[in-house]
C-alpha cells in the first residue's frame, strides 16, 4: 500500500487504547471511532474487547448499526476481539441477544466459564506461523457453529476461537493485550488489495 491504512477502533466502550497501540506497532495508523464521521473516514474497523450487551445497545442508541453494516457489506474489513466477535456474529447461542449479523457464526458467550476460568493459553495458529500465540481468554466466547465458508484458523477445547470469513475476522482472545503483533499484522494484510 502506498500510504498507511487508517484503521478505526470502535470506542463506545472497551479496551480501545490497547488496540490502537497494537495496530500502530503493527504498522497502521489507528484512531478511536465514536461517530458516523469517524467511521466513514476509516479503511477498516476493529471492535475491541468489552461488554457485548453494552456496545450493541450503544451502537443502536447512537444510530451506528446501519452505517456500520453498510460499510462492512461494501467490503470494509472488520475484526472483532472477544466482545467484538460476539457483536459481529449472526447469533448468540442460548440468548435472545441482538447482534450485527455480519459474521456467519453462532457464538456462545462466557463459554469457558466466569472470570475464575479466564486463562492464558499457548495457542496454535498455523496461519500466522509455527510459534504458538500467547492467547489471553477473558470470559471468552467460542464458536458454537459456523457457515461452510467460515474458515476456522484456531481452535481450543474443541471449539473455534479464531475464524475468518472473507474480509471478516473474529478472535475469542485478546491479541491487543500481548506484545506479539502477529494477529494484528494478519488483519492488516487482509486490507491489502
Amino acid at each position: 500500500m502506498a500510504s498507511k491504512p487508517q484503521v478505526g477502533v470502535l470506542a463506545l466502550q472497551g479496551d480501545v487504547d490497547e488496540h490502537i497501540a497494537a495496530l500502530e506497532r503493527a504498522g497502521a495508523t489507528a484512531r478511536a471511532v465514536k461517530t458516523r464521521a469517524a467511521l466513514d473516514a476509516s479503511d477498516a474497523l476493529v471492535i475491541p474487547g468489552g461488554e457485548s450487551t453494552t456496545v450493541m445497545k450503544l451502537l443502536d442508541r447512537f444510530a451506528l448499526v446501519d452505517p456500520l453494516r453498510a460499510r462492512v457489506r461494501a467490503g470494509m474489513p472488520l475484526w472483532g476481539t472477544c466482545m467484538g466477535m460476539i457483536v459481529m456474529a449472526r447469533a448468540v447461542a442460548g440468548l435472545e441477544q441482538p447482534t450485527l449479523g455480519l459474521l456467519d457464526v453462532s457464538v456462545r458467550r462466557n463459554a469457558f466459564g466466569r472470570q475464575n476460568d479466564s486463562a492464558e493459553v499457548d495457542l496454535a495458529i498455523p496461519a500466522i506461523g509455527e510459534k504458538p500465540f500467547p492467547a489471553i481468554f477473558i470470559r471468552a466466547p467460542w464458536i458454537e457453529s459456523a457457515a461452510a465458508d467460515v474458515e476456522v484458523l484456531a481452535s481450543f477445547g474443541g471449539h473455534g476461537v479464531m475464524v475468518r470469513q472473507g474480509s471478516l475476522l473474529g478472535t475469542s482472545f485478546h491479541p491487543e493485550l500481548t506484545a506479539d503483533p502477529r494477529v494484528h499484522r494478519y488483519f492488516l494484510e487482509m486490507l491489502a488489495p
Binding site: D15, G50, Q115, N116, I136, I138
Partner: peptide, 16 residues
C-alpha cells in the same frame, strides 16, 4: 488467575 487475565477484565470494562 494470572495478573494479565485479572487486570485484563478491568481493561474490558473501560469506558463503561
Amino acid at each position: 488467575g494470572t495478573l494479565t487475565v485479572k487486570r485484563g477484565l478491568a481493561q474490558m470494562l473501560k469506558g463503561g
